[in-house]
């Protein structure tokens, strides 16, 4: 009987190590170019969030929640923030929030255009789709490996990991939203002589916005999860509180971090979820279905998307 250990072991570890070293050495300017805008924005958002006085912050978030999601969510946000502050991890929470805010900006800037390109060309989508599948099937922890190899450790590489993990849902939902715009309406645009740019801005994007916002909600949640995980590669924030607590076997400390994380996540989820529900128009039913599916988990959302695409092709 042959055992696994009996097989000759390929020096794959070594190859990868050397390959990455080569990449890091020769493509250094590229990684630097990726890092520097992230570093700049992360620094800025962290500075802004840290320097806003606590009561002002509570008020601002409460107002945003009230405007976008109603009184209930606003009240919940205010209470959550006060609890977080009373747990003594306000500064850490703001650091985590800045990781998330920055990630949202980058995901939107990168993800929405890619989603648009995917929606416009089946060929692009056929290339991007399997990549997204792999990215979303990859456990968040595994993201850290290439990131550390290429970007090193710390908050900025952590942010790179957050952006990479959080962008796929937005790309998917942008693509889906545009493709799902009612065929007859797109044709009306064409029949009245819209050029591709007008078609995008007058018809496709506006009608896809509820779906895109649904994707944004997913992106925010993924960013939330990831911003905790990247504590393992040295990013600061609430994740670090948990990690330190676990490292010192200080269960109390770890739990404090955990509670703050859950509160922050629920707050962000509620606020962004309500954004995706349209105030008017005919798409309410559709979006509600989508939202329900998203709450049911990512896999079902993917299934729904596939189904929608098949329907579109059959129609």
């Amino acid at each position: 009987m042959i055992r696994a250990d009996d097989l000759a072991i390929f020096p794959i570890e070594q190859w990868i190590q050397e390959g990455v070293r080569w990449l890091a050495l020769n493509l250094r300017p590229l990684f630097q170019a990726i890092k520097s805008p992230i570093e700049a924005l992360l620094g800025l958002s962290d500075w802004v969030l840290q320097s806003i006085p606590f009561p002002a912050m509570v008020l601002i978030v409460g107002l945003v929640a009230w405007r976008s999601a109603g009184v209930g969510v606003a009240a919940f946000s205010v209470v959550s923030q006060i609890v977080i502050a009373m747990l003594g991890v306000w500064a850490e929470a703001m650091t985590t929030l800045s990781l998330i805010v920055t990630a949202i900006v980058f995901c939107a800037v990168i993800g929405i255009p890619i989603g648009i390109l995917c929606a416009r060309s089946d060929r692009t989508w056929n290339i991007v789709r399997p990549i997204l599948d792999i990215m979303q099937a990859t456990p968040t922890l595994v993201y850290l490996v290439p990131v550390v190899m290429l970007f090193g450790v710390g908050s900025v590489p952590g942010e790179v990991a957050v952006v990479t993990a959080a962008a796929p849902p937005l790309i998917r939902f942008t693509n889906l939203g545009i493709r799902m715009v009612e065929h007859e309406i797109v044709e009306a645009g064409l029949a009245f002589g819209a050029d591709p740019r007008q078609l995008l801005w007058e018809i496709q994007l506006p009608l896809a916005i509820p779906t895109i916002l649904g994707g944004l909600n997913q992106t925010v949640l993924t960013a939330m999860v990831m911003s905790v995980v990247v504590a393992m590669i040295g990013a600061e924030g609430l994740g670090l509180v948990v990690l330190q607590g676990l490292g010192r076997l200080d269960v109390g400390r770890a739990a404090v971090g955990g509670i703050a994380i859950v509160l922050l996540a629920m707050m962000l989820d509620r606020i962004t979820q309500k954004l995706a529900e349209p105030q008017r128009g005919q798409r309410t039913a559709l979006v509600q279905v989508l939202m329900r599916l998203m709450r049911g988990g990512r896999r079902e959302a993917i299934a729904a998307q596939t189904e929608a695409e098949e329907n579109r092709q059959a129609a």
């Binding site: 029949a191 002589g193 009608l207 798409r283």
Partner: peptide
């Protein structure tokens, strides 16, 4: 399409 022919659709195709 802009100036010489226009179209009316069965399901109206208005921008909602």
């Amino acid at each position: 399409r802009r100036t010489r022919m226009s179209m009316v659709f069965q399901h109206f195709a208005l921008l909602p």
